[in-house]
Design a protein around this nucleic acid. Sequence first.
DNA 1: AGCCCGTCGGTTTTT
DNA 2: CCGACGGGCT
Length: 739
Amino acid sequence: MQPTLFPLQNTGSDEPQKNIIGEGSLNPAQLEAVTTVDGPVLVIAGAGSGKTRTLVYRLAHLVEQGISPENILLLTFTRKASQEMVSRASMLMDDNCRKVMGGTFHSIANLLLRRYGHHVGFAPNFTILDRSDSEGIVNLIKSSLEIGSGESKRFPSKRIILNILSGAVNKSRQLDDLVYNHYSHLVEFLDDISRIQKHYSQFKKDHGLMDYDDLLVYFRDVLANVPEVRAEVSNRFQYVMVDEYQDTNRIQAEIVRHIGGGHNNVMAVGDDSQSIYSFRGADFRNIMDFPKLFPDTKMIRLEENYRSTQSILETTNAIISRAQERYTKTLFSSIEGGGRPVLYGAKDESDQARFVAKKIASLHNQGRPLKDMAVLFRSGFHSYKLELELTNRHIRFEKRGGLKLTETAHIKDVLSFFRIICNEQDYLSWNRILLQLPKVGPKTVQKILETVKMVDDPVSVLKTFQAGKTWKQPFVEMLEMMTDLLQMQSPVSQFDRILEYYQPLFERLYADDFPRRQKELDHLKNIIGEYDSLQSFLDDTALDPPETGFEAPELEDDALILSTIHSAKGLEWDTVFVIHLADGKFPSSHSAADPEQYEEERRLLYVAATRAKSELFLSYPRESVAPDRSRQYCSLTPFLAELPSGLVVSRKPGMFQSSGGENFEAARYIPRKKTSHNSSPAGKTEGQSFHEGVAVRHGFFGEGRITHMKDSRTAEVYFPRHGLKILRLDYAKLELVNS
DNA sequence: AGCCCGTCGGTTTTT
DNA sequence: CCGACGGGCT
């Protein structure tokens, strides 16, 4: 949410406006993007240029134009983003907007493949695999093909193998081509990798499993090869909007082309300077190819930044201006004030952590809420030291982009039972739960599963299996439980039945810290209780997994945000710290060799720095401890070292204690204009003056008059150009008009 | 001999 | 928290 957007240039114009959006809410370029309803549109939106706002307003506009929300498709990068946009549009317009179909490419593909998947050989109860599931299958195949065991040379790990397989899919390249060009050191293993690829793909088909890539690929295939489905889907989604288009890959672009092909009402929004997902096959040049997919595309550029101060923008502009290739122009801002970004060369990692924690504590004492500050970093583990420091100082924080709850072993255990209930062919899950039996290892599991190969009802067939003496008892108990589960209806009672069996195993398996894990199991039960379908619960565990390390619900939810830069995409904070900006860590030494990856790291830093509204702190440790405990000197990341002097204020250890009234300490907290969200309820502060008869202004509907207060927080407002609306003052951004 | 299970070092980024 | 490794069980 942004501070004041400058008013429309044409206010007071005498031509009567159709499609009126409330004045003062959108600039001309945004307005054009919002009101262009038909035909293809490409919006190149710089960081902080009101991209989300534009999408939200357009959503509301479409619905107000009488387009049925069911006919609108909003494709976003995370599910959170789409929920947020839909709910903001609902506040702007009305609850009708909630019927808009919104989600990630993967979640939409999932929904439609449940219905149309039979065209590509999948039953509707297929299971979605997350990353570690996929790696598990690669491992199973590796050992069953006896690859990489006895050889003298090191065969690549399952992680690398999967990177290669997935890379080939997402970059739409042949396996050998990819290996020769990007994994040349692994060319000697190409034959084995290729064998794994074939078996991996067959295994998934045989057992009703789809990984993330399959969701996209099969969805694309159905659309491409089955004209009736394509027509049905395209007809259903008459208006398509795609956010973060710079991070889509070719398969996703093809999906958009197929859905939008019938009517061409497609809007893509993105910024090539913020493309940071090439490892997933995204190519920032794709965004420039959009007009090729949709001829006669109208191009709109949003170049005014409403987020950051001009001095922060000068630095971020300088960072991105050194990019080798880009299309967007330099951003400008009219937000004055605030100091220059601060660059802190810390003595070492501990000093860096202390600096960040102290600074945050001091800003917090000056009145800045913790949730308006964030610390960003390249990799998840970069924040470990800081987490300790924050804990010591009792500063509450919330970590994003860390381990997911569903990636922890005990949760995966429980999920495996559920997955088998939905899809008895899921041998990956069978593998997992059979391994839990005492004295049963990989070899024994393979023998067991051989005997039920391809039968429709493994549970009943397994009952005839001759189990080994040592594990017969638990094996039989497990099968009894599975039989019970298959007859039960409510997921919560199924959960209880699973725990009846699993609890003793669980306590034995995780003897050291099972109380902590127990809480997570309880948490899982609560989550399951919120679903009415087991299938959709399981889908979400892969497509929208809850973060781990959840806390007991606390009343005050003010917490500092720690986040990987990737997970910070699209977000903003008043104060942003970016840490570990040392050469070798950022860019990571992994990327240094490849110019394309090196450039992506630069964009990553750009994304990080453009999250800041009023204060930006950049830091790096001058010294780090190498694996052999020797101390290593670190230099500043080249992305910052190459900047002209004067853009940032440099600080060294010790300097920030001897204040001396310098610029650094002068960076005071100036409260920004509050958004309606986190200000106290309107009924208390300004709300006193909302009453029947007063003139008000709404961001979308324009000026109107309150005709009736339904209660202290709900107003009925008549807008001349939009009619009577019921608005909740807690959410709707309503201003008084002095008349 | 085959297999299971405990211990010890390294870890991009995400749907 | 995964993979490699070696001890020890069947």
